[in-house]
Design a protein around this nucleic acid. Structure first.
Lengths: 234, 234
DNA sequence: TAGTGGTCTAGACCACCCG
DNA sequence: GGGTGGTCTAGACCACTAT
C-alpha cells in the first residue's frame, strides 16, 4: 500500500543535486552543504554522497576543493565527449555496407615534415599507406597513413590489401598516447578525386597520432567526404 | 632504510593493470581475474579494486559484465574529450587579447528551417544575433545565434553590445541538454568578409544547440577563422 | 542456479588548503 | 590549525546473466 521505503542510491542523489542546481536552489557560484550534511539529509553515508558528487564534478557541474567545499560552476559542462569508433562500425551502424580498398602501400624514407613531427631520426624508414573507405560504395573517407615499423613487430610483412591498417594496428599494437586534431582542409586534386568532389571543396579532416610510451607508432590523416558531421549530445 | 611499505591506492592498481594490458600480459579479449582475486593479490579490498577497474572501464580499456567478468577490449573505444572553453578563455589562454563586437541584434520571426530544427510553433518570435570574436584584433570567430525568448527571462531587455550572448546566457539560463556538431563549411561572402578570408575557403564550423529540459533555448553557429584546429590528447 | 560485478554501510585516517 | 574532501577497510546484500 505505502510506497516502498528504499534508500537512495548515488544515482538518485546525483539527480536530486542536479535538479537543485537547475532549479536555482543552488545557483552558480554557491556552496553546497558538506558531504556529511548531505549524507545526513539523504539518510545515506558519506561514501555514497561522495560518489555522487565526485561524478558530478567529473561531468563538469561542480567544483570541489578540500576545506573550501563544493561549489556550483557557472559555466556548466566544459567537456564534449566524442566516441572514436572504428570506421567500419561507424558505417555499418547506419545500415550501410562497408567496403575497404587499398590504394598504395610502400616503404619509404620519412619525409622531413613527418620526421620532425614524430621526432624520427634522419632517414628513418616508414611505411606509407593510402586507402579508401566506402559506405554503400560511395566514398566515405580517404586515409593517408604512415607507420613507424620499428615500433610495430611484423608490420613489414603485413598485407593491407584486405584488412585496413587501423584494424590491423589495433589488434597488434597497444598505444598509450594519442593526439587527435580536427580541422577543415581544402580538397587538393588527389583528395577531390578520391572523394569524388570538386577541387577546393571543404573537407572535414582528422589527424590522429599515436605513441607507445614515448615511441611514435603511426600518423593518420583522415579526409571525410563532404557533408560529414561529427555530432555529440550531452 | 627499507622502502616504506604502503598500501596500493586505486591509482596504483590502475597503473599496474594498464601496464599488464599494454605489456600483453593480459592481451585483448582475455579475461582478467575477478575483483576478489585482484584484491587478494594487491593486499587490498574489493572496493578499491572495483574503483580502479570501474574507471578503466569508463576510459574504454576494459569491459565489465556481471557473471562473465572483466575483459580487455581489443578496440580501445577511447573517448576523445574536447574542452569547450568559453571563447574568451580560449583566446586569452594563448596570451592574446580578446575583443568582442556585436554586429547585429534584432527580434524576428523564426525562419522555417530554424522552426523545424528546434520544433518551434509557427511564427515564433526569436532573437537573432551576429557577432565577432577577435584575438589580438585578428578575426577569430564569427558567431550567428538565435535565442528563443520564451525560455529565457529578460532576454528581450538584454543588451549584447558589451557582453557576448554566450557569456550572458551561461549566467542566466542553465541548460540540461546540448548537441554539438563539428563540420567543414565553405565561406560564403558574409563569412569570408568577417573572417577576412577568400570566398569559398574551408571554415571549421561548430553548431551548438541547447535545451532546458525539452524546451529549446538557443542555436549558435560558430565559424572559426581559417587555420583553426581543435586538438585533444589522451 | 551460481558466479560475477554493483552498490551500500559504518568507520577510520589522511592530505590538502583556506584563514 | 582546523575543516573539508580523498581514500581505504571489512563486510554485506543485491542484480544481472551465462550456463
Amino acid at each position: 500500500m505505502k510506497p516502498t521505503r528504499t534508500t537512495l542510491s548515488y544515482r538518485d542523489i546525483k539527480k536530486v543535486v542536479l535538479d537543485r542546481i537547475h532549479g536555482s536552489i543552488w545557483p552558480p557560484d554557491s556552496l553546497l552543504p558538506t558531504e556529511t550534511e548531505l549524507a545526513e539529509e539523504f539518510s545515506s553515508t558519506r561514501t555514497t554522497v561522495n560518489r555522487a558528487l565526485r561524478e558530478l564534478a567529473e561531468e563538469g557541474f561542480i567544483e570541489r576543493r578540500r576545506k573550501s567545499g563544493t561549489r556550483v560552476l557557472n559555466t556548466p559542462i566544459r567537456k564534449a565527449q566524442f566516441a572514436i569508433p572504428l570506421i567500419r562500425d561507424e558505417i555499418t551502424s547506419t545500415g550501410a555496407t562497408y567496403r575497404y580498398a587499398l590504394v598504395e602501400q610502400q616503404s619509404t624514407v620519412a619525409p622531413d615534415w613527418l620526421a620532425a613531427r614524430l621526432s624520427l631520426p634522419p632517414r628513418q624508414e616508414v611505411i606509407h599507406l593510402r586507402c579508401m573507405h566506402f559506405a554503400d560504395n560511395t566514398p566515405f573517407q580517404y586515409e593517408v597513413r604512415w607507420i613507424v615499423p620499428d615500433s610495430v613487430p611484423d608490420v613489414n610483412d603485413a598485407d593491407f590489401s584486405e584488412v585496413g591498417p587501423n584494424d590491423w594496428l589495433v589488434q597488434k599494437v597497444p598505444f598509450t598516447n594519442l593526439e587527435l586534431s580536427l580541422l577543415a582542409t581544402k580538397a587538393d586534386d588527389t583528395v577531390a578525386a578520391f572523394l569524388d568532389c570538386p577541387i577546393g571543396e571543404p573537407v572535414f579532416t582528422a589527424e590522429r597520432t599515436t605513441w607507445l610510451r614515448q615511441t611514435p607508432v603511426t600518423l593518420a590523416k583522415l579526409y571525410f567526404a563532404p557533408g560529414y558531421k561529427l555530432t555529440t549530445r550531452l
